[in-house]
Design a protein around this nucleic acid. Structure first.
Lengths: 209, 209
DNA sequence: AAAGAAGTAAAACAACTGTTTGATTTTATG
DNA sequence: CATAAAATCAAACAGTTGTTTTACTTCTTT
């Protein structure tokens, strides 16, 4: 029977998925280097051989988990940026960048694990971003459309740099203790505090006040 | 003879110091978790037992290296902030924060290793900052003096948060590839690009433009 | 010159790492 | 029901980890 075959496959995919989520959480906590085979399998309730069986190696499992995390985050990011129009403000752009990160920070659990992993690989990026390069660059062009309209006269290269700066700041908040402190507050208040900072960084401040 | 005794001690302190700087560079490259005993000793040209002999354990060596790095960086930071006066501008404050990090980024070598280590422990801070807590808080009060004067009407708690944000951004630049790209440019140009971003983040931008 | 402290060095230690093997169980299909 | 594929499991693999032990050299002091 075909349905029973699917059930069997589901059972197989269950330990496979368990390994992925366990890896995700450990990645977020200890980073790519600190990932241990026994830790992963114990957390997932699976045998050590399951990693070789389902993924081939621990490194392959790690890469798969990282790619999963990055794609989920990029999708959330692109969705938030899709609301931008040609005459969106810098503040709205900042919201588009901050919201996915902040929501995950407030949610905790797997969501938090994902953005932490994304932030970690922002420090030590894997050799090839593979098929996610497109989505990644898409976020940049989305941002650039608003920035060139709101900040004419500033070099496009410079605008890209500022975009990467605020992304870096958000990544830092995902990893460092200050982000955890921030996450204790209600989500809307987080955004209210953070967005002016991001928008200010994007706009820059040339003259001394 | 006393001079000969000193020479002997110098020989002892030489391998001790070699272990420290080797640890520093490896910490900067692989982080606190990725530190390996054999790697350290080979890089320092010392025997594995030297670590136990001089520091007691690898963890103790790591802590000693971290403390050394943090103190050197805090001293540089405090020196830069000491130039601030009651009527310094936000830009000058941003310079005070950015300059030590940027100079080290451009210098490379041990200087770079130090700020990378400092940035890493910003993510995973050791349990007790120990005797460095004072210097650490000093940087915050130095910044606060300028901020409260230039940005009246903003909550002091919020100003501290913004200070930590720009420090986080600088830490991110020390670790992530974007920082390495930035470091390829001449030092004065780096500052010229970075300071407006930091000052803008400190000032914030409340209303949509 | 003898005794002793300070530092170095090679080897062995148990505990861990990721991976593989072979047997066993579970499930789907004939 | 029988057969074969899919999945799980305990056990063992070789390699690495940090630490300790022991012997040895080097230098200082008496």
């Amino acid at each position: 029977m075909a349905e029973r075959a699917d059930l069997r496959r589901e059972a197989g995919q269950r330990t496979r998925g368990g390994l992925l989520t366990a890896t995700l959480e450990l990645l977020a906590r200890k980073g790519p280097e600190g990932l241990s085979l026994r830790e992963v399998t114990e957390k997932a309730g699976a045998n050590v051989a399951a990693v070789s069986y389902h993924f081939g190696s621990l490194k392959a499992l790690r890469d798969a988990a990282v790619e999963t995390a990055l794609e989920r985050y990029l999708d959330a990011q692109l969705e938030a940026l899709a609301r931008l129009t040609p005459d969106s403000t810098l503040t709205e752009l900042a919201v588009g960048f901050a919201r996915p990160m902040m929501q995950a920070l407030a949610a905790g659990g797997t969501e938090l694990a994902i953005i932490r992993t994304v932030a970690r690989i922002g420090i030590d990026p894997p050799a090839g971003w593979g098929r996610l390069t497109g989505k990644f660059e898409q976020t940049r062009t989305d941002a650039l459309r608003v920035l060139t309209a709101r900040l004419p006269g500033i070099d496009e290269q410079e605008l890209i740099f500022r975009t990467r700066c605020i992304a870096g700041l958000l990544n830092w908040l995902a990893l460092a203790p200050i982000g955890a402190e921030l996450a204790a507050e209600p989500a809307e208040r987080i955004e209210h505090r953070l967005v002016p900072i991001l928008a200010g960084a994007l706009a820059g401040q040339a003259a001394p006040v």
